[in-house]
Design a protein around this nucleic acid. Structure first.
Length: 255
DNA sequence: ATGGTTGCTTAGCAA
């Protein structure tokens, strides 16, 4: 089973790229983030022609998440359902082939101590609460998505420049570790210990050409799944060429 | 410290 996650930065701007990528990589599951479109504008028909079902939680202009799968997603849940009045579409869950799949778009946070940053930290707390309340600490579970956290120095080309930012600071590192302490494993680090592997490169400083990036997109899996993870990688190739997303897809293979 | 680029939406926000 091949599980992947990709912040595509607009489903409409990236539809052709997405379809081409699905055809070449043939994942069983692809979690996508930043649709930047409501569900009515989601290309269900073309995805169906490529052999994929879709569970979609859309939103006009911002955010938006989905789970694409070759088998039909079951028990779809959009949002945390935690009686906050949150309107941001950043979370969808579904069961595919017996695995509970979570497609998450963690808030960026803008800058530390900003209102958006407080929302980010609180959102991560709500995610952990969701995991506990939905008995996702046991069983096969995969937390996939743009977590907007670089876990360690080796996940950043220039860690000194990023220390203290919303993507890399003691608070968000602790948030990431608390997911690990709940039993989840970072699939990429099960197979690769070296630095130099990133999933996001800022458009603004032409970071990709210099491989000046951060590893902020992740596939975290539960204790039940992690022993079956036989490979993990980042598809840097998908960041190349004309009009790429600023993120690359992250993949994990399971027996 | 600021701004650089991209996408959505059409001047400004978000990343």
């Amino acid at each position: 089973m091949l599980i992947a996650t990709w912040n595509i930065n607009s489903i409409r701007a990236r539809e052709t790229r997405l379809l081409d990528w699905l055809q070449s990589r043939q994942p069983d599951v692809l979690c996508i983030q930043e649709l930047k479109a409501p569900e009515q504008e989601f290309p269900f028909e073309s995805l169906q022609q490529y052999g994929y079902y879709a569970a979609v939680f859309g939103q006009k202009t911002y955010n938006g998440v989905a789970i694409l799968a070759r088998s039909e997603p079951e028990d779809v849940e959009s949002g945390f359902g935690d009686d906050t009045d949150d309107v941001q579409a950043r979370f969808i869950a579904a069961t595919v082939d017996g695995v509970r799949i979570l497609s998450t778009y963690v808030p960026n946070g803008e800058r530390v101590r900003s209102e958006k940053y407080i929302y980010k930290i609180n959102w991560l707390y709500r995610l952990r609460t969701y995991l506990k309340d939905h008995t996702l600490l046991t069983g096969p579970v995969a937390i996939c998505g743009d977590l907007n956290i670089a876990p360690e120095e080796r996940d950043i080309a220039n860690p000194d420049a990023w220390e203290g930012s919303v993507l890399f600071n003691p608070d968000v590192r602790a948030e990431f570790r608390s997911l690990l302490s709940m039993g989840f494993m970072d699939t990429f680090r099960l197979h690769e210990a070296e630095s130099g592997y990133y999933s996001w490169w800022d458009y603004r400083n032409r970071g990709f050409e210099r491989n000046d990036g951060l590893r902020i997109d992740h596939i975290l899996v539960s204790r039940e799944l992690s022993p079956q993870c036989t490979a993990a990688r980042i598809d840097r190739e998908a960041r190349e060429g004309e009009k790429p997303s600023d993120h690359a897809p992250v993949l994990a293979v399971f027996d």
